[in-house]
């Protein structure tokens, strides 16, 4: 049998077993909710008092499904299965590129772009632009809680104009005008980074490295470990900096110091690799936890 056929068969068997186990463990792969009734009284003091009623639903564990007030949620159960389908479809890429993967990938691109747009719109544009420029309208529509004595802040016309110019980039002609907001963006980024990086990552890191080579305890005896540790750190930082210094030829003593620097960097990258592996595996176990625990209920 071809190797690919064996892998495919194994995957199908695993998938089939998974689905069978869902059936065996009844109640798994289903979502239950508790109804929470909401009763809200009209906030307006001028209009006659009116009571508004609706229900919100809180997800509960399947163990509570027979309790009073708990009901089966079709939309969330459907959601759970859609989520499982999406997970398996993306995992299917491990076998090879396929239409199922491409389909979910296309959905992902569309949903993420729209998600960022919607969140940006409600959190920043509506709250910090619309409400600043048109506070009266904002109070009547989205923010009834806003103070009534707030007036338009016309200074916010500047970011509005810059934003329109930024979106002009999508226009077929005259999109050079988008350079203006871009210049503001770049200038602001450069301005805040220049000071912060120099203060924290340059001066701060140098300060942290300025340590005594030999450390003594209060009673005057030498602390070997602390001294060795400080020496390793100082030598490490210095040798790596020498390696990064390309204005002098790496010859003679400089060559040996920079070589030591390379070794320190290799240790750094080795540790970084190990931590990266750790992170990636944690992400996989998080996803498999969803499949086994939340969906299949194993």
């Amino acid at each position: 049998m071809k190797q690919s056929t064996i892998i495919w068969t194994l995957l199908m068997v695993f998938g089939g077993l998974g689905l069978i186990s869902v059936q065996l463990f009844r109640g798994k792969g289903e979502v239950y909710v508790r109804e929470v009734p909401v009763e809200a009284k009209s906030s307006s003091k001028t209009s006659p008092e009116q009571t508004y009623r609706w229900s919100t639903y809180q997800e509960v564990s399947a163990k509570e499904k027979d309790d009073p007030g708990i009901s089966f949620s079709f939309s969330r159960t459907l959601g759970l299965w859609v989520a499982a389908f999406c997970t398996l479809a993306i995992f299917s890429f491990l076998y090879g590129d396929n239409p199922l993967y491409k389909f979910t990938e296309a959905v992902f691109v569309g949903v993420s772009a729209a998600y960022a747009m919607v969140v940006g719109f409600w959190t920043e544009i509506v709250t910090n632009l619309y409400a600043k420029l048109l506070p009266e309208l904002a109070r009547m529509s989205f923010f009834p809680d806003m103070e009534s004595d707030v007036h338009s802040d016309l200074l916010y016309l500047i970011p509005l104009v810059l934003s329109v110019l930024l979106l002009w980039r999508l226009a077929p002609k005259g999109n050079w005008i988008a350079r203006w907001p871009l210049a503001f963006f770049i200038g602001a980024t450069a301005g805040i980074r220049l000071i912060s990086y120099l203060e924290t990552d340059f001066i701060g890191q140098l300060q942290s490295t300025v340590m005594p080579f030999i450390v003594f305890s209060a009673d005057g005896s030498m602390l070997w470990f602390k001294s060795l540790k400080n020496t390793v750190v100082i030598v490490g930082v210095t040798s790596c900096m020498v390696y990064f210094f390309f204005s002098v030829e790496h010859e003679g003593i400089v060559k040996y110091i920079s070589r030591l620097g390379i070794w320190f960097l290799m240790v750094t990258f080795g540790a970084s690799f190990a931590y990266t592996v750790m992170g990636r595996i944690a992400l996989l176990s998080g996803r498999l936890d969803f499949l086994f625990n939340e969906w299949l209920g194993i």
Binding site: Q3, S4, I7, L10, L94, Y95, I281, L284, S285, L288, D289, F292, I298
Partner: peptide
């Protein structure tokens, strides 16, 4: 075939998790 490595990794994470 690298898919064998993928499968081994899948098992290595799944079994202790279950």
């Amino acid at each position: 075939d690298r898919r064998w490595i993928f499968l081994t990794m899948f098992v290595a994470v799944s079994v202790p998790l279950i």
